[in-house]
Design a protein around this nucleic acid. Structure first.
Length: 311
DNA sequence: AAGGCGGTCAACCGCCGGGAT
DNA sequence: CATCCCGGCGGTTGACCGCCT
């Protein structure tokens, strides 16, 4: 039971918008701007729900929207960001000027996820499907852990750790390869730089707080040094974001990848906490920086056309 | 020609978080 | 502090279209 509907459904028109309705909405927004959408229908002379008006405007009528097909570069970016962020379409869309979250979501659901699947890549985890099947088989026969999940000398490791984001290109290409040494060094350098910016009173967030089951344990075991900083409680939102990018992306990637596993929820909650750590989080900026740094994604191939999954 | 089928995408729905009161 | 309202988000639906049989 959610909130009551925002509109009187009996007096609200639904369905496709007509050119006349578009014109009314455009005329109103061009003179009055956006905001207070609940009053917009009445003032614009529309028999629509305010939410519907907002959606129509943001997804279709808003200036500077791109209506043409997605480019190869945009596809690459979506795949990369989806690997980093999961289905946070608004964040992904923020990195694609002129695209809406609805655009990106639809494009992902109808095109990109299929492309990945055809390439043998699981679109949720961004791992090779064959790899996942092996992992599932290993999980099925693995005995329960004998040690607490945070034991440092854990002999308990999955057959294949969940993926690191810097592997995304490799996954997308279907060729899983380890990062080159200089790539790893550069990743660590970024972590160090981000960590150096940590505030004097860091937010107390621990990855372990979000651990709930095996999947999260696997993710933690696969984490890098940067994630260890998170585990030690010296959390800083940007550092944590970097930790997730470099070592803890498995949490993001695992989110939603299984049917309701608690670890997936934990990973998602962890990311939520990161994103909630203040308006100045700089997540967008961090994403932009990471994307601008070719070292993160420089693999054996540099574009998805080379990946071989062009149209 | 017509019906079935799958793909695409605009739009809706319900939930959530944040600000206002 | 509690409640209400609004905007935003992600998931889902359904209309439309083109292709195939």
């Amino acid at each position: 039971m959610g909130r009551p509907p925002c509109c009187d459904k009996a007096n609200v028109k639904k369905g496709p918008w007509t050119p006349e309705e578009d014109a009314k909405l455009l005329a109103y927004t061009s003179t009055h701007g956006t905001g207070n959408w609940t009053n917009v229908p009445q003032r614009a002379g529309l028999k629509r729900c305010g939410k519907s008006c907002r959606l129509r405007y943001t997804n279709y009528l808003r200036p500077n929207l791109k209506h043409e097909n997605f480019t190869q570069e945009e596809e690459d970016l979506i795949v990369t960001l989806h690997a980093m962020l999961g289905s946070r379409w608004s964040l992904i869309a923020n990195q694609l000027p002129g695209r809406t979250d609805n655009d990106v979501k639809n494009y992902w659901n109808t095109k990109l996820s299929k492309k990945l699947r055809q390439r043998g890549i699981d679109p949720i985890t961004h791992r090779p499907i064959a790899d996942l099947m092996n992992s599932i088989g290993a999980l099925a026969i693995r005995p329960p852990p004998q040690q607490p999940p945070h034991a440092s000398s854990s002999s308990y490791l999955p057959a294949t750790a969940l993926p690191l984001v810097h592997d995304v290109k490799y996954h997308a290409s279907g060729i899983l390869q380890p990062p080159l040494p200089h790539q790893h060094q550069q990743q660590q350098a970024v972590i160090a730089r981000v960590d150096a910016d940590a505030p004097a009173s860091p937010v107390e967030l621990k990855w372990s707080d979000f651990l709930a089951d095996d999947a999260a344990v696997v993710a933690a075991a696969a984490a890098s040094e940067a994630q260890q900083q998170v585990l030690s409680g010296q959390y800083h939102h940007e550092a944590a974001a970097a930790a997730n990018v470099v070592g803890g992306s498995s949490g993001i990637l695992a989110a939603g990848s299984s049917s309701g596993g608690g670890g997936d929820d934990g990973a998602a909650a962890f990311i939520d906490a990161i994103l909630d750590c203040g308006k100045e989080t700089g997540v967008d900026q961090l994403i932009a920086e990471l994307l601008a740094d070719p070292a993160y994604y420089a693999g054996s191939c540099s574009s998805s056309s080379e990946m071989g999954w062009g149209c």
